[in-house]
Simulated scan of single mutants.
Amino acid sequence: MPTPDTTITAPTRFVEAANGVRYAYRRFGTPGGTPLVLLPRFRGDLDTWDPALLDALAETRELVLVNNRGVSSSSGTTPATIADMARDLIAFLEALELRSIDLLGFSLGGFVAQEVALIRPDGVRRLVLAATGPQGGPNMHGWRKDIADAVRKDEPGAAELLYTFFKPTETSQAAGRAYLGRFLARTEDRDVPSSLQTRDAHYDAVCAWGVADHAKLQRLQSIRQPTFVANGDADAMIPPSLSHLMGGLIPQAEVKIYPDAGHGFLFQHHAEFAADVNAFLSA
């Protein structure tokens, strides 16, 4: 059951699913209603989310954070395809008996969220796609060299995160430094870093998902859930134009682009994004 904990105090829990994976997760927030499951970014884990964003979301709903197979403190080997990641996430949902959820996917997590919504349409009530793109979309086959080199370092640090996630303006960089302080605030029961195997599998999956294929874009028309698509206006990893593309192809989609922001717009504009997500999920 959800707890009165916050992002910083919620304990890490474990559940073993039918696929033999022991999933690490945290569950907290306001009881009642449809739980919101959050899927993290490339190499992301339970502690790479912004506590300010999560606590604002948790004021009105129950949150479930999870490490998918092989990621950080979850067992197993990380798969190299989005389809396999989606199947693994479904196994986790079944283990917790979560039969109806709202789903928020950030970046690579947004790829997985789209796939889950297509595989199990009856299990996803509403969908939030943040800083992400559709399978087969243009200009998505891997990241440009400076971005890929930064995020694929063995141990990327603050400099790499500020460079890749925030716009090179004074205001966006200041917001990035503030985020760094918030997400490092948890000092006990922190998640373990993701492995290099996860890094490589995630990037293989990113590249395979991003091979340009116009036919695969038609899959978006089968996402029938109300969908909120959002990004920053200067995302260097996933072109914001792809948010508009998804908005045009998903039948019940609405799109918002946040100003002066990059890939980490949801951390820079955490209060506004949380309010937008809560309003969308409550509509």
Rank of each mutant, 00 (worst) to 15 (best):
P79D: 02
L53A: 08
V15C: 04
T164C: 11
R69M: 14
V128G: 12
W49Y: 06
D122M: 09
V66M: 13
T12E: 14
D204T: 14
M85H: 09
D55I: 10
T227W: 06
Q252A: 09
I147E: 00
T34W: 04
S100I: 14
N139E: 15
D84S: 15
R199V: 02
P4Q: 10
G29W: 09
Q218D: 15
L98P: 04
Q268K: 13
D88R: 06
G176A: 10
F111P: 01
D5Y: 08
Y163N: 13
P4C: 03
A113E: 06
T81I: 10
A215H: 05
A208H: 12
S243D: 08
E97Y: 11
G142R: 04
W209N: 06
K145D: 15
T6D: 05
L57G: 03
F267T: 09
D122H: 12
F166Y: 13
D146F: 05
P156E: 11
W209T: 07
F267L: 10
H214C: 00
D191R: 09
V229L: 12
E59Q: 15
G123E: 08
F92Q: 12
E170M: 09
N19A: 12
D84E: 15
P40V: 02
E155Q: 06
P138R: 08
R186L: 11
Y25R: 10
L96A: 09
